[in-house]
C-alpha cells in the first residue's frame, strides 16, 4: 500500500519488483498451503458441475460421457422455451416466490413491531423462542405437521369445517388449494425467523426519537408510523431487493415434499421439473439446459438487485 505513495518508480526496479513479489509469494506459502484443500474442493465440487453443465449444449449419452457426447447448440433451450410447460413452470415459480414475499414480509414487519412495542419483556422472549422454532425444522417434519392439520379424516382444520357443516377438503391434493398450502405453510415456518432483521433495525433506532415523540404526546400508532416504520424501511427495501434476486428459487425442498401427481399443474416449479425430467426420466441434457437457464437468469437478477441495493440503501450483499 505504501509503495503507491512513492513519487515515481524508476524503470530499473521493475525486475526487482518481480523478485519482490516472488518473495512475497514465498513468505505466504503457508497461507496457500492452508487454503489448498479448500481450493481443490472448489475445483472438484463447485467447478466440476460447471464443467458438466456443458451437456446443456450437447446430446448427453451416459455411454459417451460428458466430453464424448455431440454438440447440439441451443437445441434444448429452444425445446424448453417453445414447450407447453414453459409458461406453467415460470408462472408457478414466480407466483410462489412473489406470494411468499408479498404476504410474508408485511406480517414479519408487523410481528417485529409488536414484539418491539410490548412491555411484557419475558413474554416477548418466550414468543420469540417459539416463533423462531419452525425455521429449524425440516420440510419433512413440516409435512407431518401439515398432515395432522389438513388431512381429510382427522385433520384439525377439516374437523372444524365439518363442525360447521362443511365438506372436508383434501387440501394437499386439491389443485384449488395446493398453492395456498405452499404459501401459507412457508409463511408459518419462516415469518418468525425473518422478524430478526427488523427487530435489530428497530433496536438501532435512537431512543431520543421515541422520547421526543412521547414529549410531543404522540399516540402509539403515530409513534410506529412516524418513527419505527421509517427506521426499518431500508431493511425492508434491502430484503425485498435480495429476494427479487432469488425470485426463481421458489422453495424446492418444500414443494418436493408437499406435492403429488394431482397438483403438478399448480405446484410444479423449475427445480422440481428439472428433478423429474433429469433424474427420473433420464433427460439429462434437457434438464441441465433448464437448470442452466435458471442459473443465468438468477445471476443477472442478483447482480441487478445488488446494484440497486447499493444505490438505494447504500448496502449490498457482496
Amino acid at each position: 500500500m505504501t509503495l503507491k505513495t512513492l513519487p515515481a518508480v524508476p524503470p530499473s526496479t521493475e525486475k526487482f519488483d518481480f523478485k519482490k513479489s516472488l518473495c512475497a509469494l514465498w513468505r505466504q506459502r503457508w497461507m496457500y498451503f492452508l487454503m489448498t484443500p479448500t481450493l481443490i474442493y472448489f475445483a472438484i465440487f463447485k467447478y466440476g458441475p460447471l464443467w458438466n453443465a456443458q451437456i446443456a449444449f450437447k446430446d448427453f449419452k451416459p455411454l459417451l460421457g460428458v466430453m464424448g457426447s455431440p454438440w447440439v447448440g441451443f437445441k434444448h433451450f429452444e425445446t424448453f422455451v417453445n414447450s407447453f410447460y414453459f409458461t406453467d413452470l415460470m408462472t408457478n415459480t414466480i407466483y410462489f416466490s412473489l406470494a411468499k414475499l408479498v404476504l410474508g414480509l408485511p406480517l414479519a414487519v408487523i410481528c417485529a413491531i409488536a414484539l418491539h412495542e410490548t412491555w411484557l419483556v419475558k413474554y416477548r422472549a418466550f414468543v420469540q423462542t417459539m416463533i423462531y422454532l419452525p425455521h429449524f425444522l425440516s420440510w419433512v417434519i413440516m409435512f407431518g405437521v401439515l398432515l395432522v392439520i389438513l388431512s381429510p379424516g382427522n385433520g384439525l382444520l377439516n374437523q372444524v369445517i365439518e363442525h360447521f357443516g362443511g365438506e372436508p377438503i383434501s387440501f394437499m391434493t386439491s389443485p384449488d388449494h395446493f398453492r395456498w398450502v405452499v404459501i401459507l405453510s412457508d409463511i408459518w415456518k419462516e415469518t418468525g425467523w425473518s422478524t430478526i432483521l427488523y427487530l435489530a433495525a428497530l433496536l438501532a433506532i435512537s431512543p431520543d426519537l421515541y422520547e421526543a415523540a412521547a414529549v410531543d404526546g404522540a399516540s402509539p400508532m403515530q409513534r410506529i408510523w412516524y418513527i419505527s416504520l421509517p427506521g426499518i424501511v431500508p431493511v425492508i427495501v434491502l430484503v425485498t431487493l435480495l429476494r427479487m434476486g432469488h425470485i426463481l428459487e421458489a422453495g424446492f425442498n418444500q414443494i418436493f415434499v408437499l406435492y403429488s401427481v394431482p397438483v403438478y399443474s399448480v405446484g410444479d416449479i423449475l427445480d422440481t421439473w428439472v428433478y423429474r425430467q433429469g433424474i427420473l426420466q433420464f433427460q439429462f441434457s434437457l434438464a441441465t439446459a433448464v437448470g442452466f437457464f435458471k442459473g443465468v437468469i438468477g445471476l443477472v437478477l442478483i447482480l441487478i438487485s445488488n446494484r440497486i441495493a447499493k444505490r438505494v440503501a447504500g448496502q449490498s450483499l457482496f
Binding site: 472448489f42 458441475p49 460447471l50 458438466n52 453443465a53 438468477g298 445471476l299
Partner: peptide, 22 residues
C-alpha cells in the same frame, strides 16, 4: 482472484443434474 472464484459459485449454479452426474 480467489474471492472471485468463490463468489462466482455463489452467484451462478447450473442446477441439480451436473452435480448428480459428478
Amino acid at each position: 482472484v480467489i474471492m472471485a472464484i468463490v463468489l462466482f459459485t455463489y452467484l451462478f449454479s447450473p442446477g441439480l443434474i451436473p452435480v448428480y452426474l459428478l
